[in-house]
Design a protein around this nucleic acid. Structure first.
Length: 888
RNA sequence: GGGCGCGUAGCUCAGUGGGAGAGCGCUCGCUUCACACGCGAGAGGUCGCAGGUUCGAAACCCGCCGCGCCCACCA
């Protein structure tokens, strides 16, 4: 709609405009009118599609959610006003460990897959954390679904309160039937193409959750430890009996000595040359291990000799693999030292009895307990050299875990990533990053990958692998020949569904079958959000069987933008690019818009454990949604922002200002004129056009914060200077032909500029802009067209460059003089309306000539009797206030 | 150890080669005909430090210091 048609509707402006109640009033109206409904009939080039971050619904509501989702919404609203059909669904990430943990605590249950399903199960009325009820996997999943439904409502309430312009008819969940089907289908495709494979291998393992975890889910935490110097003696016949007949290593993990398979030195380390190639005996256990070399060993560290165990850390895995070392594994899946077969192959000892006796002391203990005990044993055996040195070291934890991850050998599913690294780096360069420097994090991550992606988890609430395995005559599982589900069957749960050609009775019996017991990593499903949202939106919930929608998918994929925060570049962003590459040989989106974090006022990351998390609901109530959005939108892309309620007050002020400025501009004081005749009006419109151009460029580059800042600064200037300068001319109408024209011009300029401001602010302050728009316009401001700078300028008619420049100068000098007049009144402690007898303006000839264009406006605005001018090099103003009226 | 970002007023931050700025906070004033949820004015800065390029540097280059984040083969 061109602005010229926007002024036809008579304004109905409230006597006392207010922000109260706008959220409810307008969110109901938007829902009723389907204001944000995606237009499926739009051609692809008119579609703007957003790959929404599905929030983890089991996490607590956090002001950080408000922050980044507001950024996305501002962009969505801008694109909609640019005429795009905006595809803006909302997803809920409900599968995975956080939900499991919450369900366990909330209902007082534990999942036990061996328990049969009980259709009539109800959780205990008074949940007991100490003695949880064991329930079947299907029952457990039902409870997960029940709880996430409540969580999802809380999130939806928040999003609606915040005014997100989401199409609520298109929601999805990551545990829903659609997501499961897409996830399973993708997996089967990868399996067929050899991109997914199964392997029994050392795997990162969380001992509390007892599941494999991925490299991407690790984080470092500083933990105190102690460095111990331990003696390994040379094996019989390898020494000459002299004092040097031992090898010293340093370790923080002495409990892994029974799992030691070699000692290593750097190939160039002269000090160790005499030992290399010999055999040493592990202390206490008397196991023969070789002394070898490897270039990764750092001769500067410790004694220059390092103990390789299966497995203490990821480097051990590298050494074990590259040097072809045997496995001697002591750590069980539960994080305790397991029983080991002393004397069997690989567990030989020069003193078996002693090895058994000493290991007896460790077996069954946790890592920490075993560490303490083995140090005592080593001390007794005189195999510790010197005192332990306290050290602080970074230890790898599963990000949701409570104890360090261990490396445990187990059978897992992997997706190939290492072989695609070059392609993934190339995709990263094809993607437009906002801000651009965020690409470095992606490249760092891809370059630092150490292995393929382990996607299987030994958990319950997730997408199962759509696979079964045959059992041989002895009941052993034949892992090498999985039976895949047919595509039409998906989604399947192999723990209850039965593969073709088998019957239920054959489950778990020799010659029969078993289902794959694992579920997929939550990122294995979240990495498919473009496909899930674009293919099955609207089929939320597990009950739905709605199919994928190829027509829709073709319209929205690849998506235009992935908005997300920088902390999950290595997980969500990376894995989505990987899956899109593997399944579609394409980038999943054209742009990545990266948000920062919300920090607490002390600039610390907000986290539950620190207790500094701010929840958002009360902020919306206290300051209003527009005010909270204003604060959020002030946070620049990629930049962390300290939480600051003060900024919300500023946002509220802006919203109130817009109410009042709109009321003023729409007051029907004089009939509208046909054209903008007054120089100051024309100059203001020209400046506004420049602001529109700036905001448009900023938004096109996803810099909503810059757009807001430019608009806001100009809007306040407009209220403080322009409105004050033209106010008098507007009220003074009717005296002469000139006055009538002048009043008509200002009336015209006010409406034109107001329409632009309301639209410029609409992406940020959707509620108040909709309110003021409704006073005089048809339809929603959020479906109005984004203002156009060229169109605004064309309304000025054909303007010569020189005359435009002098008009702008007129506005500038009028505002400068007005400021000086105000200053004089303020210093004299007189009201702003106090009359001024005479003003003398000193300035250059050019500026003084320009002043003549706006001098009448200036006189009225400052209540000035006479304005005189004197040519001068420097700008200066003399102000003579009129005599103060006598009291009484 | 490597990478990225940041360092400007008490606080939060804008400022891509030519006047050091905004908001908040603080002080003072003004019941003003859109707005007291308001308006006007004022005080307040060695632009982290040091060097270089330039007629001219808060900005560009080099080095250093500090803070934050990401990554690392953390013994």
């Amino acid at each position: 709609m061109p602005p010229d048609q926007l002024t036809d509707t008579p304004a109905t402006v409230p006597e006392r405009p207010t922000l109260d109640g706008l959220e409810q009033k307008w969110s109901e109206a938007w829902e009723r009118d389907g204001c944000y409904r995606f237009d499926r009939s739009a051609p692809r080039e008119r579609v703007f599609s957003i790959d929404t971050p599905p929030p983890t619904v089991s996490g607590s509501l956090h002001v950080g959610h408000v922050f980044s989702y507001t950024h996305t919404d501002a962009v969505a609203r801008y694109q909609r006003m640019r005429g795009k059909a905006v595809f803006y669904p909302m997803g809920w990430d409900d599968n995975g460990l956080p939900t499991e943990r919450r369900v366990q605590n909330h209902f007082g249950v534990r999942c036990d897959p061996s328990v049969p399903y009980d259709a009539s199960f109800e959780p205990p009325a008074e949940p007991s954390e100490k003695e949880p009820v064991s329930i079947s996997r299907p029952n457990f999943v039902e409870l997960c679904l029940r709880l996430t439904e409540t969580d999802e409502r809380a999130f939806e309430d928040l999003w609606r309160g915040l005014g997100l312009s989401v199409d609520w008819s298109m929601t999805y969940t990551t545990i829903g039937a659609g997501a499961q089907r897409i996830s399973q289908r993708s997996f089967l495709g990868l399996l067929e193409r050899g991109e997914a494979y199964q392997l029994e291998a050392p795997t990162l393992w969380d001992v509390d959750f007892q599941t494999a975890v991925a490299q991407a889910e690790l984080e470092d935490r500083e933990r105190p430890g102690a460095m111990n110097r331990v003696r390994f003696r040379l094996a019989d016949g390898d020494g000459d009996g002299a004092d040097g007949d031992s090898a010293l290593i340093e370790t923080t993990r002495p409990e892994l000595i029974p799992a030691c398979v070699a000692l290593l030195a750097h190939p160039d380390d002269e000090r160790q040359r005499g030992l290399v190639g010999k055999q040493v005996l592990t202390p206490l256990f008397g196991t023969r291990v070789p002394v070898l070399t490897h270039p990764l060993v750092d001769p500067e560290k410790g004694t220059g000799l390092v103990m390789v165990c299966t497995f203490g850390d990821l480097t051990d895995v590298v050494w074990w693999r590259e040097l072809g070392l045997p496995v001697r594994s002591v750590l069980g899946a539960d994080g305790r030292l397991a029983e080991v077969p002393w004397g069997a192959a690989g567990w030989e000892s020069v003193d078996l009895e002693r090895a058994r006796r000493d290991y007896e002391e460790l077996q069954g203990r946790t890592v920490n307990q075993a560490r303490k005990r083995i140090l005592e044993l080593l001390e007794q055996a005189n195999d510790i050299v010197g005192e332990p040195t306290p050290v602080t070291r970074a230890v790898k934890f599963f990000e949701k875990g409570e104890r360090p991850v261990e490396i445990v050998t187990s059978r897992q599913w992997f997706l190939r990533t290492m072989s695609h690294r070059e392609k993934l780096l190339q995709r990263g360069r094809e993607l437009s990053w906002h801000p651009p420097y965020m690409r470095a994090r992606y490249e760092d991550w891809v370059n630092g990958l150490t292995g393929d992606w382990c996607v299987s988890r030994q958990r319950f609430f997730g997408v199962p692998f759509p696979l079964w395995y045959r059992l041989d005559a002895s009941g052993a599982v034949l892992y090498d020949e999985p039976i895949a589900a047919r595509e039409e069957q998906l989604p399947v749960d192999p723990s209850t569904d039965v593969p073709d050609g088998y019957s239920t009775e054959q489950r778990g019996v020799p010659g029969g079958f078993v289902g794959d017991p694992d579920v997929m990593d939550t990122w294995a499903t979240s990495s498919l959000t473009p496909q899930i949202a674009g293919g099955s939106a609207g089929s939320a919930g597990t009950g739905s069987t709605a199919g994928e929608d190829q027509e829709l998918f073709a319209k929205v994929f690849p998506m235009d933008v992935r908005p997300q925060a920088h902390d999950i570049i290595r997980t969500w962003l990376f894995s989505t690019i990987l899956r899109s590459q593997l399944d579609h040989d394409a980038l999943p989106w054209k742009n990545a818009a990266i948000s920062g974090w919300v920090l607490d006022p002390d600039r610390k990351k907000m986290s539950k454990s620190k207790g500094n998390v701010v929840t958002p609901m009360h902020l919306l109530e206290e300051y209003g949604a527009d005010a909270v959005r204003y604060w959020a939108a002030s946070g620049r892309p990629g930049t962390d922002t300290a939480f600051d309620a003060q900024q919300m007050k500023v946002g509220r002020r802006l919203a109130v200002k817009l109410l009042n400025a709109s009321k003023f501009a729409l007051a029907d004081l004089s009939p509208e004129g046909e054209s903008l005749t007054s120089p100051l009006d024309r100059a203001m419109i020209a400046r506004l056009a420049a602001v529109v151009a700036d905001a448009t460029v900023s938004f096109d580059g996803y810099d909503y914060a810059r757009a807001l800042e430019r608009v806001e600064v100009f809007f306040w200037w407009y209220c403080d200077y322009y409105l004050e300068l033209v106010k008098g001319r507007r009220y003074d109408a009717g005296e002469s032909q000139d006055a009538r024209l002048g009043a008509a011009s200002v009336s015209r300029a006010l409406r034109r500029s107001l329409s632009v401001f309301q639209r410029l602010l609409a992406p940020f302050l959707p509620f108040v802009t909709e309110e003021v728009w409704s006073w005089w316009q048809q339809g929603s401001v959020h479906r109005a067209s984004w203002p156009d700078a060229a169109e605004l300028l064309s309304a000025l008619g054909g303007v010569e460059v020189d005359s435009a420049a002098s008009e702008d100068e007129a506005l500038a000098i009028a505002a400068d003089v007005l400021k000086e007049v105000r200053k004089a009144k303020s210093e004299a402690r007189r009201p702003m309306r106090a009359p001024v007898a005479r003003v003398v303006v000193h300035d250059s000839a050019t500026r003084l000539a320009a002043l003549a264009l706006g001098v009448e406006d200036l006189r009225l605005a400052g209540s000035i009797e006479a304005v005189e001018t004197t040519e001068a090099d420097e700008f200066a103003v003399e102000v003579e206030l009129a005599e103060e009226p006598a009291e009484g």
